[in-house]
Design a protein around this nucleic acid. Sequence first.
DNA 1: ATTAGTAGTTATGTTCTACATATTAAATGT
DNA 2: ACATTTAATATGTAGAACATAACTACTAAT
Lengths: 226, 226
Amino acid sequence: MVNGIKPIAAKSMAERVEASLREYFTKENFKPGDPLPTELELAAALGVSRNVVREALSRFKMLGIIETKKKTGMVISNPDIVGTFEKVLNPEIMDESTLKDLFELRLVLEMGIADLLFLRKTEADLDELEEIAAREVKDKNFRISTEIAFHGKLYEMTGNDTMKRFQNLLLPIFGYVMKLENKKFVSGKVTHQDLVKILRKGTVKEFKEGMLSHLQPHFDRLKQLK
Amino acid sequence: MVNGIKPIAAKSMAERVEASLREYFTKENFKPGDPLPTELELAAALGVSRNVVREALSRFKMLGIIETKKKTGMVISNPDIVGTFEKVLNPEIMDESTLKDLFELRLVLEMGIADLLFLRKTEADLDELEEIAAREVKDKNFRISTEIAFHGKLYEMTGNDTMKRFQNLLLPIFGYVMKLENKKFVSGKVTHQDLVKILRKGTVKEFKEGMLSHLQPHFDRLKQLK
DNA sequence: ATTAGTAGTTATGTTCTACATATTAAATGT
DNA sequence: ACATTTAATATGTAGAACATAACTACTAAT
């Protein structure tokens, strides 16, 4: 077996141009709004066809790192990281171990937002949350949608838009993993209504314990697996 | 002001082809390993040039959703989501509110991993962690690197590779935000060595309190801002 | 002098053709 | 039956050409 030897340039031109451009952007310290050379200039500078350059640029456009206008040219812009995440987060084509990891990540987030919640909660938020929890008790049929609504509202209350959107993306993962394991959504001893109550009048510590108890079935399952 | 009116098709062909392909993949229920039509077939089916198709395909290749081999053609594959994340996570071109959000996200993760840690910790892990903490006390100069090593090891101990890699990506964000706010890395009353001790002999609850205390300076700063 | 209109220029958007290259599959020869 | 050669095919890359939007500058008209 041949060891310590690797292919010279297995990667495609577009891939290499992407890497070169990325390096160029950081080296030149590009900031949002800064104009880029034209496609032809880049092609000439890199010694490749305009076609290849465009394939690489197309990638940056997808990430939101580059924006273009005709005649004006291209400029750097700040990418939408959550939006990008969305583009790869397809449960159908994800390997199982990653799915499991993301499922756990969701649990970790859920357990970790307590401090932010107590830092930023408002009366209006609590009222709305309470209303969601109350609605849930009436409509036995729509447990999943209210489940989503409740936890979604929690993330919203953190005042962290990125986290809220991120959690939203993880929702299908959550559902998918549950389906894979043929499990039903089961809540622990602490209900949503209990959580609201703690959030309103209790302490951070109590809330953390409450949330753990609420998610206990999920943690129990993890314990079984290992 | 004109209301309820939007541009017909402002998006580029490549962008629309990307969307069409994405829809096609899910509709046809493609799984990793499944072969795709050829570029020419796609171009014909979509009524666009092969060039445009290639620009769209290039995007999927970047995300790792498509892999290609000459002659054989293209197949669906499972994307590397953390790797994709890395491609957009450049602090230099990110807007400040997103940076702030990610900084908080890091804190939330840190607070939320306690349960996983106690579920999966091993003696070997604890030994290594203790060693890192001990090294830190000796080398006053390299506080930041040991800071990274310590918390990195914690994530590693969760047994969640995705989370570990994700945290690794957030590190530069952490540093960047600190630099932006001209703050130094300050630990709370609970040190790394204390955390190790709790992790070894204490309870989950104690560890959570310890971690909160360790990160308290950061939470205090958040409190100041709001 | 301000406005309106016109023409020219430029960079991206799109298409088409051609050829290179890797790899599979078929054909051929021993 | 096996090894070798040949052909076929899908991706990779290059180059030219034209379309299109948007900026610039010049011109004409009120």
